[in-house]
């Protein structure tokens, strides 16, 4: 999953403003709160069939790492 795809979920489904969401932004600086993490987790399950907990998502240091985490989980499942 690309950074842009993660950003798209966070803005369209998660309702976050787009501007602060940059690849290197930390999750707090990007506005990613607990509600956004729940939405992201649900969307990943719905769209990709991937179950990634909010705790695992919250451990990402920045938004780019969120995308990399999704990729790793998808590869591990394949």
């Amino acid at each position: 999953m690309t950074f842009e795809q993660v950003k798209d979920i966070l803005t369209t489904a998660g309702g976050l403003p787009a501007v602060p969401i940059t690849p290197e932004a930390s999750l707090p600086d990007a506005g990613v709160d607990s509600m956004a993490l729940v939405v992201l987790s649900l969307q990943l399950e719905d769209r990709l069939g991937l179950e990634i907990s909010e705790d695992d998502l919250a451990a990402a240091a920045c938004v780019r790492e969120l995308a990399e985490l999704v990729d790793r989980r998808a590869e591990a499942r394949a």
Partner: peptide
């Protein structure tokens, strides 16, 4: 802290 639509700084 950064505002809602602000880039850091």
């Amino acid at each position: 802290r950064p505002g809602p639509a602000a880039a850091p700084g």
